[in-house]
Amino acid sequence: MTDENDEIAAAGARVVEMLGACAEAPDDREVGRAADDALMRLERLLAVAPDDR
């Protein structure tokens, strides 16, 4: 469970980081795609986690 939580925390931190990157370069589609990839990774991790997370 701890490993799973750590993985979610790390994936979430990456989303936060990518928000900053997108804000720095809002017209950069590559940065936007990378940010959405980070969000998708978090989505996949949460999909197999309990609902109350």
Binding site: A23, P26, G32, A35
Partner: peptide
């Protein structure tokens, strides 16, 4: 087209926050 960070950033941008 699904939840999206750049879409959210463009909301900030429309608000002149970015």
């Amino acid at each position: 087209s699904g939840a999206s960070i750049p879409a959210l950033v463009h909301v900030f941008r429309a608000c002149n926050a970015v």
